[in-house]
């Protein structure tokens, strides 16, 4: 379970997150939604224990993330940041192997290599395993980084705008994979992600956390919480949640 209590984070004079208290359990996809500057990425990084909290507490499965050692945190949550710039000329396999860092600390063992092989297979990267990261397309690259986060073998995967640079085909492909991973099974991960595409959230998310100006204004199962009124209020423009051919979509009202 992820639990934040009265979490407040300031940056200079500005309060980025204000008194955020929320809790959600394992499994499924949790989407953080809200307008630009609402504090979604900050909340994600705070959950990962990578931002010092001004006040309040973050717990992941009972672990106090502020007090935990970096290695301990990295075995609890894998965070995929919004932009990933790698200066080294790594292959896809090298990159995914870095996901095993909390276990091997730079010296991969047989079980790490086995997990990397599984990650490459799961994300259909076997053919690209020997390719350099900087020769990949945006979609392939994002898949490789997601495979790296998966290989970290944490119960929680946090993804900051994973669809930002992807065209509709690759965005759908990635969401289908994440959705499959979030279902019960041997490879299951609980997934928390920041999404700007509300139709994607309406279609794939199991629960949503809506943020505005650093505060949580609603949280709960998507079907109940994600209403036209909430979205219109959240973004300050008329939006309507509807269904088209059985699929949830968000359109201008």
């Amino acid at each position: 379970m992820i639990r934040t209590r009265n979490l407040t984070i300031t940056r200079g004079e500005a309060t980025v997150l204000s008194d955020v208290s929320l809790a959600f359990g394992e499994g499924g996809i949790t989407a953080l939604i809200g307008p630009n500057g609402a504090g979604k990425s900050t909340l994600l990084h705070a959950i990962a224990g990578l931002l010092p909290a001004g006040a309040g507490q973050v717990e992941v499965d009972g672990l106090d993330m502020a007090a935990a050692a970096p290695m301990e945190r990295a075995r609890r949550v894998a965070l995929l940041a919004q932009s990933n710039q790698v200066t080294a000329r790594l292959t896809v396999a090298d990159l995914v192997t870095f996901g095993r860092w909390p276990f091997h600390r730079g010296r991969p063992r047989a079980e790490d290599k086995a997990q990397v092989t599984r990650a490459l297979a799961l994300f259909e990267l076997e053919d690209l395993a020997r390719r350099q990261i900087d020769t990949l397309s945006g979609g392939q690259r994002q898949r490789a980084f997601t495979a790296m986060a998966w290989a970290q073998e944490t119960p929680w995967m946090l993804l900051d705008e994973p669809l930002a640079a992807l065209d509709p085909r690759h965005a759908r492909d990635l969401m289908e994979r994440l959705h499959a991973l979030s279902r019960p099974g041997p490879d299951q991960r609980s997934i928390v992600l920041v999404l700007h595409d509300l139709s994607t959230a309406a279609h794939y998310a199991d629960r949503i956390v809506a943020l505005k100006q650093g505060r949580v204004i609603r949280t709960g199962p998507r079907a109940l919480a994600m209403t036209s009124e909430l979205l219109s209020d959240l973004y300050g423009t008329g939006l309507k949640v509807t269904r088209a051919e059985g699929v949830g979509v968000v359109i201008p009202a």
Binding site: L50, P70, M71, A78, G99, W101, P102, G106
Partner: peptide, 21 residues
């Protein structure tokens, strides 16, 4: 320090998220 420098080359955010100090 070499293996940790390898991880530093991933960039600060990614390096920290895999548990590097």
């Amino acid at each position: 320090l070499a293996p940790r420098l390898d991880a530093v080359a991933l960039g600060r955010q990614t390096a920290r998220s895999i548990g590097l100090h």
